[in-house]
């Protein structure tokens, strides 16, 4: 059996202001792989991420940092650097009001459930913006020592009309 275990598949099929996957991180795994695909949105917007703690509350404190390189097919590349924000900013992938333009993401999340370490993120994504391709490579962190059990995705503006999340746990056999 593979050590990469499919834990959860969540599909959003009607308009929501945010899309959440809850109770998916646990002490069973320390590293998770997430794919976000089949997206559609009501507006053209950045896609952002927040974590949900093990009590079920969305973490909205100003303790998220992000560093992302956005490679553009039509212009010079841009850098996204944010600190002490209320979310991991612009993970890429979706957030387009024209369904065809929505791409996808692959994320890795490290140590979410441990309350003694920060929760880290690696992201790669592609999406088609108005002028062309935007491909993002980003890192992020929640600098809060809390136990994280899930995550939520939201846009700077508009609603999420479609989105599919698959979460895998990367098992270590001892």
């Amino acid at each position: 059996m593979s050590n990469l275990r499919l834990l959860n598949e969540t599909t959003i099929s009607s308009s929501v202001s945010s899309a959440s996957v809850t109770d998916v991180f646990s002490s069973d795994f320390d590293i998770y792989k997430i794919s976000i695909s089949d997206s559609d949105s009501s507006a053209n917007s950045n896609v952002n991420l927040r974590f949900i703690n093990s009590s079920g509350s969305i973490v909205t404190s100003s303790e998220y940092d992000t560093a992302g390189l956005i490679a553009l097919s039509y212009a010079s590349f841009s850098e996204n650097r944010t600190t002490n924000q209320t979310h991991i900013d612009n993970i890429g992938g979706g957030g387009r009001s024209t369904e065809a333009e929505n791409g996808a993401n692959v994320l890795y999340i490290f140590n979410p459930f441990s309350s003694s370490s920060y929760t880290f993120l690696l992201s790669q994504a592609s999406v088609q913006a108005s002028s062309g391709l935007a491909s993002t490579k980003a890192i992020g962190v929640l600098t809060e020592l809390s136990s994280i059990a899930g995550f939520t995705i939201f846009l700077d503006s508009g609603t999420i009309d479609k989105m599919k999340f698959r979460t895998y746990g990367l098992r270590v056999d001892t």
Binding site: D38, E99, A100, G103, A104, A125, S126, L133
Partner: peptide, 18 residues
Amino acid sequence: VYFYNLGNSSKYSFCTFQ
């Protein structure tokens, strides 16, 4: 390379690579 949406006729076909 990761490929996305290849079989979806209503979406563009994307990839990311390293």
